[in-house]
Design a protein around this nucleic acid. Structure first.
Lengths: 257, 257
DNA sequence: TAAATATGTTCCCGCATCGGGAACCAAAAT
DNA sequence: ATTTTGGTTCCCGATGCGGGAACATATTTA
């Protein structure tokens, strides 16, 4: 029996995989000791030890009394990533404004590996708690951000992504077939903004607008809130307008930079 | 002839070193291609290729039209690091207040690998631009943050660090010998706060106070400004008081959490 | 105090695997 | 059409990796 999801060809470097699984362990739980990591990963202590040495050498880990933890070098890396994305300041300020004026959550996301990754999250006064956070990945077909982006990617890329989607219903409203998705994308393209009507998380509705710069889509910006507060009227009225305006401002600031 | 700085014992994993040098290249310059990286690092294309595959698989890189770049997964890692440090919210809010009320720069730093790493930086209204940024490392002996921390680390750890310092004068005021440093540390310990009088960067003065929690030092918080605005009186008066008060508040918030 | 236990570090070995050369492709440039 | 550039695959041989076990160090228990 084959593995269900076809691995892309090409070789992988085992040691690097081990190194990153160690890092993943340290993300889940800091102050972890050599033995703990070795057990968790099913590798020998000596192997893990050499890896930890290497990572510590690279200043990625710090060894403290009761085990290892990830170092602040990661924060440095994060800063450079943000600056490479560009426009971070504008995006942040627009999302902050959106969150402030709507009192809900506002997020900015970009496409990576066929999913949406959150670049920034702003939390308004009355905002509900959600599990989403910066760096997190979500499917494209069940989120407003994802749909916005899908409508503006190059056609072949959109096809490729839609092709590879495994539709799994996360709520009763989740889109579950490519056909449904294509129809929805047509609707989105026509009206200029996308919605998520409890399709990803029960009780949460969402509007998003794409941010483009000469033909290419940079990402999308959204507002999310509980269905109780986000009526049809508000969703397609005030909120849709707001996200589109915000997207526009970001676009303008991109042109001249 | 031996290498000048004695490497600590133990084995390193070569492949992991390669992987991270690739990541470093991508930090310096995004949208870098296979061939560019291979040349820069002096490795074969096939080697670099396998590594990129592995890293992409791990969702750490994204391949775009014109090359690879680091992905937002790094931001996610950064978030978990922040949360592992703990108290981030309090630290942020205190540094923000300090920056606001002094109009200068306020920073929080912790010790890592015998150096100070910045965890957070707040910029006040009139603050001067400095090169320092979150995640950056600075020497301990030439910074107010570093001296504050040194006075509160366990004695053997302090000794170890002082031992390993290579004193290099970055300005005319830089401390250049262990003896001088020990004297300075005594002074710091006595009065409860540390200063940096243009010892690290010409024209920049700085005050810092340590943040401790039952015997152990968590880090230190500082205010920095141009010598023109930061007079002796202000440095040892208003600013010294402010950083100590801020440090205190953070300490209190740590106790009850 | 000594014995016992747990944890970290070092030493080696055998073989998997990593790095690299070269061939092979694809796409762009001339 | 032809050349050039850059990306991917194939394969080989040496090496450096993973792991077992010994050794060292710190902590616990009796």
């Amino acid at each position: 029996m084959d593995a269900p999801s076809e691995e892309p060809h090409g070789r992988r470097i085992q040691s690097v995989e081990i190194a990153f699984s160690i890092i993943e362990v340290l993300q889940r739980q800091d102050h972890t000791t050599v033995t703990e990591i070795a057990e968790e990963l099913g590798h020998s202590k000596s192997t893990v030890h050499s890896h930890l040495r290497t990572l510590e050498d690279r200043k990625l880990l710090v060894k403290e009394d009761d085990g290892y933890r990830l170092s602040l070098k990661v924060l440095d890396m994060a800063e450079t990533v943000r600056s490479q994305i560009g426009n971070y300041e504008v995006i942040k300020s627009e999302a902050d404004s959106l969150a402030a004026e709507t009192s809900e959550i506002s997020q900015f996301g970009i496409e990576e590996h066929g999913m949406v990754s959150y670049l920034y999250k702003a939390t308004g006064e009355q905002a509900v708690e959600t599990v989403s956070h910066v760096g997190m990945q979500q499917p494209m077909y069940s989120t407003a951000l994802g749909k916005s982006i899908l409508t503006h990617l190059p056609n072949d890329r959109t096809d490729e992504i839609v092709q590879s989607i495994e539709f799994t219903p996360k709520t009763p409203n989740t889109i579950t077939s490519p056909e449904e998705l294509r129809e929805e994308l047509d609707r989105v393209a026509e009206r200029g903004y996308a919605t998520d009507d409890e399709e990803n998380i029960e009780g949460l509705r969402c509007v998003a607008a794409p941010v483009t710069s000469d033909e290419t889509v940079l990402g999308a910006i959204s507002v999310s809130g509980p269905s109780s507060r986000v009526t049809d009227e508000r969703l397609h009225g005030e909120l849709a307008d707001s996200v589109q305006r915000a997207a526009n401002i970001i676009e303008l600031n991109t042109k001249f930079s």
